[in-house]
Amino acid sequence: MNKLEIQQLNKTFVSEKNNKINVIKDMNFAVKEGEFLCLLGPSGCGKTTLLRIIANLENPTSGIVTWDQNSIQPKIGFVFQEHSLLPWRTVYGNIAFGLELLGKEKEEIQKEIKRLISFVNLKGFENSYPRELSGGMQKRVAIARALAVNPDILLMDEPFVSLDAQTRNTLQKELVKIWKKTNKTVIFITHNVDEAVYLSDRVLILTQRPTSIKAEANILLQRPRDRTSIDFINIRKDILSKMNY
């Protein structure tokens, strides 16, 4: 069953000097319920704009985004690229943010956050402020905040791009675990082939701006995946050759 369908999507920005910049061109794809989908594309190709349109932060110039019938008013869990934690709120307050906006009871919020904090390994840091946390921990908070509202979909915009390689690998591993436990549908943006092959069920390879889908690759490897296995390396090669900008 499809969670979400994108049909004939176009986006053109008009600058103040009336210059038109076409960023998305005739985009069509569907995301299955529970699928982990990666959008792989070069920097500045318009993939963030695509994600923002899905999250309803931006309107498309033309085309439609259709959700399944269970999510007429879809709840979004968005993990931003950088610096999206509210600096005046503690870890607890940040994770509570979405639940507060949904008007949940205090006790219910408390229970849910307690569960999430141990789920993303942040026990003992409830009262810390974001500036006191490492980059990896900040990401965990951002993921917990997105999951807190029990979203219909998890949208992740190059969330691990600013992390060092080791932390990135750890968080990728944890993200796979979280995804398996929660059965969430995920759209994950990256320009890193390795990351896409490690995480996803399916990769959509995007073109340069104005972006559209250039190729598609299904990744059927068992999880947790081994980056050094022959299969993994072959899939990487295949995707790299398909990218070939």
């Binding site: 923002r52 999250a55 309803n56 932060l57 709840k75 979004i76 869990g77 968005f78 931003f80 950088e82 610096h83 999206s84 509210l86 943010f97 979405g98 507060e100 906006l101 949904l102 905040r145 509202v149």
Partner: peptide, 19 residues
């Protein structure tokens, strides 16, 4: 970015102002 975060949780103008 903070305002975007609030908007993804369906926050309206008053919530954005207050929170």
């Amino acid at each position: 970015a903070y305002i975007d975060v609030a908007k993804t949780f369906n926050a309206k103008g008053y919530d954005i102002l207050k929170k």
